[in-house]
Amino acid sequence: MSWFKRKTKGITTTTQDKKDTPRGLWYKSPTGKIVDAEELEKNFYVSPEDGYHVRIGSKEYFEILFDDNKFKELDANLESKDPLKFEDTKKYPERLKAAQEKTKLKDAVRCAVGKSKGKDLVVACMDFAFIGGSMGSVVGEKIVRAADYALKKKIPFMIISKSGGARMMEAALSLMQLAKTSVKLAQLADAGIPYISLCTDPTTGGTTASFAMLGDINIAEPGALIGFAGPRVVKDTTGQDLPEGFQTSEFLLEHGFLDFIVLRKELKKRVNQYIDLITNQPLRA
């Protein structure tokens, strides 16, 4: 009977000799479902097994929203400076450089104009990968300029929020971006141009306290974390256990702060449906 017994005990393969699957072929969702990466991409980066909306960036959202992935990027070259000479454990310019190298992005938002279902749409989309999608001067300025483009050309405007909040390394300058972006949104509102806010995972802090909550409609992807104070801060402050589903999209919908929750694969359709309805135009197919 020794033919099925191990001759030597334990696993003897050295770590170097282990045959790992190449990275990026599979994706594991938080519920533990394994999805083929290619299949995930085809499914709008939503796990077909459990509907989990994987965090994606501006590249993917532009691909989803613009016809044939054709768009013109606006103000692509704006970059952050270091007006406060901010230094904690690292200097701010070093952090910026590291983030730029890692993400191949200039800062935490990209703005573009292009056709969505045949009509122009201006989209400002945040990238969480860049210092937590934090909002500094560049994010504020790019959003303002994109909104101004929409204002001048009378094109509907959309912001996709994905941010941990303000960029601490720009301190009060970052805080003032809340007011700065709100100025342009007020002008858009006065001009009667629709503004759609899409909240994605996560939308917290300064973004929630400004443009993310100021849409003519506020919509969100399922299961996204949306809140002003982060859940850990709320828990530490109140000492209370947080109810299940606290600060999720579903929670916000229930409490009256979202118009609806949208599946990523229906995003393009729903956004354009709203635009056609609110501007009293025939519905596009």
């Binding site: 704006l78 952050s80 400076k81 001067s137 560049v138 300058l173 007011a179 100025v183």
Partner: peptide, 9 residues
């Protein structure tokens, strides 16, 4: 408020 912020490019 539109003037607030420091950036390059």
């Amino acid at each position: 408020y539109l003037e607030m912020g420091v950036f390059k490019g």
